[in-house]
Design a protein around this nucleic acid. Structure first.
Lengths: 251, 251
DNA sequence: ATCTCGCCGTCTGTATACAATCCTAGGCGA
DNA sequence: TCGCCTAGGATTGTATACAGACGGCGAGAT
């Protein structure tokens, strides 16, 4: 997805454009996308539009409908919670398998290096955190963690779930919380990061799994806080743009 | 997938034909599929071939390659093990969430009904088992289990993983084991089926999860037994047709 | 009033011609 | 001999015309 910048083909451009529109909530969930209309709008023929929609279906952003055609997939609040839960379960599995199977020195060094650099994001004051660096390194940490089990199957599935913006490990970091409370929760998260790697290194599979799950739970609780609090904050979160408003069950 | 029989469109026919070929191992893993060649072979134009391949990519049987085109995804023995492990983890999550969130009387009755009918598959003698009915009902049980958590997200992900033939709950049932040993392992599996539902009904989430994982483990051990034993049996298993021979690491 | 049948419009399915791109093989030059 | 560069073939990308299928709407019959 990184090399998609400066796209060459019409298909790729349509893919990027449509993905952006869906993620930004330009289409309500359940909206049917018509080839002809989009083709006209994007000034291309139906063929690349179809190709792009097909790939968006692979990404899980569109759904095929009976007798052809696509609709925008709709996500309710409950789906967001379940997806974050699922990420926790999968990352927990990656952590457990890594602990059980053992990891190479090189990989351990790599993730420990990320941990060190994450530590460097924190200043003396509770609210002093380099958010930008933290967010970037947090993403790298989770990516490294998913690779620790040395299983392409697990890695793939985590990547798949994580692809949805609201399930990304860094989804709810730059929230509207007060800097102080926010910095505190980030310090706790970082402590969990360390504990997970320590458990893996000590071959404590069950502990590693439990910690990884609890870590995902933190993200989930940030989300719940956003939802329970200011609704304007929630609707301003880019990661929540494609989530249907209303249904807020299953706390 | 059930309504695909008596397919109307060329795309659907191509999809079924190609899927069948891949699953039967007609293409080695890594083989690149060319639109023109397949179009000629199937006596249709490139357009429906492309559409079919795109859907096979969604199913995880094909992979897109850089600069266009598809290759048949290749599965090593380690991937099979990881996928079965993953199924156990996901079914375990479904079971745990079902226990934690509670299930309706109707759903509980439905899965208990399946359990009763599974019991009826066993005769007096150890080797006396109605394999055909058991296999069918076993599939239904696992499907009902995946729906018990009342989460489309989880259900979807289980369906996705289960779609691969070697990860299906019924993948390694009709094996080349001796009837008596086979019947015994099926009775154990059925005991696990019951225990999982009992744990869910009693709201024992952790127990339900552990049991579901262990249950998947049984399938994995059947697979290992097949692999360790007669290699001819392994190569005769339809579910293993698309698995690369050779690599047998990670026991 | 309601049900059914058939027409028609709209949307996707398909074929095909042409364009663009990528990879490779071969030759030329340093 | 090695490397680069070019030319050509192979393969996908794109546009477009036509075909087919589904659904909605209206007219007619009961």
């Amino acid at each position: 997805m990184a090399q998609e910048i400066e796209a060459k083909t019409h298909t790729t451009r349509a893919l990027i454009e449509l993905r952006q529109r869906i993620l930004s909530g330009a289409f309500a969930g359940g909206t049917r996308l018509f080839e002809v209309a989009l083709a006209e709008e994007l000034q291309i023929s139906r063929t690349p539009v179809r190709a792009a929609m097909s790939r968006l279906a692979e990404e899980g952003l569109l759904e095929r409908v009976r007798n052809g055609g696509f609709v925008v997939r709709s996500f309710a609040y409950a789906d967001v919670l379940d997806t974050i839960e699922l990420r926790g379960v999968l990352e927990g599995t990656a952590a457990r398998l890594a602990a059980e199977r053992g990891v190479t020195e090189a990989k351990l060094r790599e993730i420990n290096d990320i941990l060190t650099r994450l530590d460097a994001c924190f200043g003396a004051a509770p609210g002093a955190v380099d958010f930008v660096s933290y967010s970037d390194l947090n993403g790298r940490y989770h990516e490294a963690l998913s690779r620790l089990a040395d299983s392409l199957t697990i890695e793939r599935e985590i990547a798949r779930v994580t692809h949805l913006p609201f399930a990304s490990p860094s989804a709810f970091l730059p929230t509207g919380l007060k800097p102080e409370a926010f910095g505190r929760s980030l310090r706790i998260a970082q402590a969990q990061h360390r504990a997970i790697v320590e458990a893996i290194a000590a071959r404590e599979g069950t502990r590693a799994e439990a910690l990884a799950r609890e870590h995902a739970r933190a993200g989930r609780e940030n989300l719940a806080r956003i939802f329970a609090g200011d609704r304007d904050v929630a609707s301003a979160m880019p990661a929540l743009a494609l989530v249907e408003p209303g249904g807020r069950d299953r706390a």
